[in-house]
Design a protein around this nucleic acid. Structure first.
Lengths: 150, 150
DNA sequence: CCAATATACATGCATATGCATTTATAAATT
DNA sequence: AATTTATAAATGCATATGCATGTATATTGG
C-alpha cells in the first residue's frame, strides 16, 4: 500500500484538475461579463427553489452543496444582503433557521441559467458526443461513489 | 446557439465539479495532516525541479500552471519566504527574474510526493480499472484541447 | 532617436476561504 | 432537575484569490 500512481492515473488526475479549473473559470467569466452573481449563488438559489416555500435549514444546504459550515454561513450573509434569500428563525429548533428564496432570488436565478447553461454547452456539452458524455458521467459517478463512501 | 444543455451533459458537469472538489480536498487534507505545504507549492516546485539549475521566468510558470499573474507573484512570495525557491534578477531582461528551486525546496517536494501520490492512488487510482482510467484521461484530454483552443 | 505601446512583475484594496473558537439551544446521562 | 455532551450557526483572525492599477523595462513605429 501507499504505492505511487501509474502514468495513466497521473495523467487522468492532472487532466481532471485542469479541465475542471478551465471549465469553471469559463463559466464564472461568462457570469461576470453578464453582470451576474457567481456560480455558488446559483447553486444555493436552485436548491432553495427546489425546496419550495418552507426553504431549507442551513445544515441541509451544507450537505447538498458540500460546503463547509462557516463558508455557507457567510455565503448566506452575502446572498441575503443582496436580497435573494430570507432567513427566519426556526419555530421548533431554537438553534436553527430556515432559509428561503425571495422573488428577486428566483428572478436572478432564472436570469443566470441561460448564461450558465449556454456556456456549459459551448465549452463542455458540444465537445463530446452523447455517448462520450454518458461514459464520462459514468466514470465520474463511480469515482464519487467511492470517494463519498469513505 | 445558446442552447441549454441536455440531461447527460448536466449530470456529467455536476460530477466533474464534484469529483474534482472531493478529490482535491482529500489530497489537501492529507498534506495538511502530514504538516506539509499545499498542493500548489508542489506544482511550482516540480516545475522548477524539471527546469533545472537555470530555473524559469515567472511568466513561464504562469503558463505551465495556469495561474493568474498576480496569484503567482504572491505564491512565489510565500514559497520564497519559506526558503524553497530563490528569485534573482534576469541578466538580459531587466524587467524579469529567474526563479529556481533550493535544496530545501527539493527536499520538501520529495517529502510531499509519497503523501500526494498515495492519496491520489487511494482515492482515485484504485477506484477505476486501467482501461477506465485511460478512457477518462482521453475524454478529459479532448475537453482540454477544445477549451484551450479558444 | 523618441514617443507610443507592450510586456514583466508587484501591490492596494475588496472579497472569499480555512481554522479555531464562541454562543445558543437541544438531547442525553446521571 | 442538574450536568454533560452534541448540534446549529456565527465570528475573529489568518491566508488566499480577484480586480484594477502601478512601476519598471523593452519593443515598435514614426
Amino acid at each position: 500500500m501507499t504505492k505511487t500512481p501509474n502514468e495513466t492515473t497521473m495523467r487522468a488526475w492532472a487532466r481532471l484538475m485542469k479541465s475542471q479549473h478551465l471549465l469553471l473559470s469559463r463559466v464564472e467569466t461568462a457570469l461576470k461579463v453578464a453582470d451576474l452573481p457567481p456560480l455558488t449563488w446559483y447553486d444555493v438559489l436552485l436548491e432553495l427553489e427546489r425546496a419550495g416555500a418552507d426553504g431549507l435549514r442551513p445544515f441541509e444546504l451544507e450537505q447538498h452543496l458540500l460546503l463547509a459550515q462557516y463558508n455557507l454561513s457567510r455565503l448566506l450573509d452575502r446572498i441575503e444582503k443582496a436580497g435573494f434569500i430570507r432567513r427566519k428563525a426556526h419555530k421548533e429548533d431554537g438553534r436553527g433557521q430556515l432559509v428561503s428564496i425571495t422573488r428577486a432570488g428566483s428572478a436572478v436565478r432564472r436570469k443566470m441559467w441561460p448564461v450558465y447553461g449556454s456556456a456549459m454547452n459551448e465549452i463542455f456539452g458540444d465537445q463530446l458526443s452523447g455517448k462520450q458524455m454518458a461514459e464520462l458521467a459514468n466514470l465520474l459517478g463511480d469515482l464519487i461513489d467511492h470517494a463519498s463512501a469513505k
